[in-house]
C-alpha cells in the first residue's frame, strides 16, 4: 500500500487528428466544460494524419480558459529541449500557468528516422532524455547567473540565454515503463505517465513502477511523494460490471480509487474521443473517486 496522498487530477487523452480539423480542439473544450482538470494530446510527428501537437496545444489553449494542457507525451527526438523549454514557458505565461510538460524519449524509431532525426537505442534515449531535462531546467532557471551550459553527449548547449521561466512551477511528466527510465524519473522528473494498455501485468504493474522511482528518488535525496503518478486509462461504460474499467460509473470509481489507495496513482487520463464518455468520466466517475479516496484517507 503506497498512497502518496497526492491530490487527484482527472484528464482526457485526445487524438490530435487533423481531420476533422477542429475535432481535437472541440474535445478540449468539451473536457473543460465537463469539468476535467487536464486535457492531453499524443505526439507522433511522423504521422500526417495528426496535427503538430505543440501547435494544436497552443491553439487549444487559446480556445479554453481553465483546463490545464500537456503533451502525452511529446517526442523528444523530434523536438529540441531548449525550444521545448521556451515554448512551454511562453505558453504557460500566456495561459496563466495552465501548461505541463509531458515528455517521451521516443517510440516508433522508424518514423522518427524517416523524418530526419537520429535513431537511438533504448539506453541512449534514456541518457538523451536525462540531458534534455537538464537543459530544460536550466533554461527555466531564469534567475541563475550565467548562460545555459549543458555539454552532453546528445545535447550541447553553450551560451544560451536563460529564461523565460514558466508562470508556475511546471512539472515534467515522463512516459515510462522500464527501470532505467523510471530511475531517471526518480532522480530528475516530476511525474511518471504510463498507459494502462501497455502495462503487461495490468494495473498491478504500477507497484514495480513505484519501486524503481521511489528508490532512485530517495538516493537522490528527493521526496518520492512529490513525484506524481499518472496513468492513461481506457475503458468502456456499460450497464453491468464486466471487468476492470468496463462497467457503470460506480464501478469505474471503485477501480480507480483502488489504484490510488493501493499504488498512489493520482492522475487518471481517459483515452477517448467521445464527448459523452468525457462527460461521464468528469461528471460521474471523478467525484466518486474523490469521495472514495477522501473517505479512506481520513479514516
Amino acid at each position: 500500500m503506497t498512497d502518496y496522498g497526492q491530490d487527484l487530477l482527472f484528464g482526457a487523452f485526445v487524438t490530435p487528428t487533423a481531420a476533422p480539423v477542429h475535432q481535437a480542439v472541440e474535445l478540449a473544450v468539451a473536457a473543460e466544460e465537463a469539468g476535467l482538470d487536464l486535457v492531453t494530446f499524443q505526439d507522433h510527428p511522423y504521422l500526417p494524419r495528426f496535427h503538430d501537437t505543440w501547435t494544436l496545444m497552443s491553439y487549444a489553449a487559446a480556445r479554453t480558459s481553465r483546463i490545464r494542457l500537456s503533451g502525452n507525451v511529446l517526442s523528444l527526438p523530434l523536438r529540441q529541449p531548449a525550444v521545448l523549454a521556451r515554448s512551454h514557458a511562453a505558453l504557460d505565461r500566456l495561459t496563466g500557468g495552465r501548461i505541463e510538460m509531458g515528455l517521451g524519449a521516443g517510440a516508433f524509431w522508424d518514423g522518427i528516422e524517416a523524418m530526419g532525426a537520429r535513431r537511438l537505442s533504448a539506453g541512449q534515449s534514456v541518457d538523451a532524455l536525462g540531458e534534455a531535462i537538464a537543459v530544460i531546467r536550466a533554461v527555466w532557471d531564469a534567475t541563475a547567473t550565467g548562460p545555459v551550459a549543458v555539454r552532453g553527449t546528445y545535447y550541447q548547449v553553450d551560451g544560451l540565454k536563460r529564461g523565460p521561466a514558466p508562470a508556475h512551477d511546471m512539472s515534467i511528466w515522463v512516459g515510462a515503463y522500464k527501470p532505467r527510465m523510471l530511475r531517471l524519473i526518480g532522480r530528475a522528473a516530476d511525474g511518471v505517465l504510463p498507459s494502462l494498455s501497455y502495462l503487461e501485468d495490468g494495473p498491478s504493474a504500477y507497484a514495480g513502477i513505484n519501486e524503481h522511482i521511489d528508490a532512485a528518488a530517495r538516493d537522490a535525496g528527493r521526496d518520492p511523494a512529490r513525484i506524481r503518478r499518472l496513468l492513461n486509462i481506457n475503458g468502456t461504460f456499460s450497464q453491468f460490471g464486466r471487468s476492470f474499467l468496463n462497467g457503470p460509473a460506480e464501478q469505474w470509481a471503485e477501480d480507480l480509487a483502488g489504484l490510488t489507495l493501493e499504488h498512489g496513482v493520482s492522475t487518471f487520463i481517459l483515452a477517448t474521443d467521445d464527448p459523452t464518455a468525457i462527460a461521464e468520466f468528469a461528471g460521474d466517475v471523478a467525484p466518486a473517486v474523490r469521495a472514495l479516496v477522501a473517505a479512506e484517507r481520513s479514516a
Binding site: W54, A61, L91, G163
Partner: peptide, 10 residues
Amino acid sequence: DGDAWTLLSW
C-alpha cells in the same frame, strides 16, 4: 523572451 510560433498559434 518567448517563442514566436507559440504566440502565433495562441
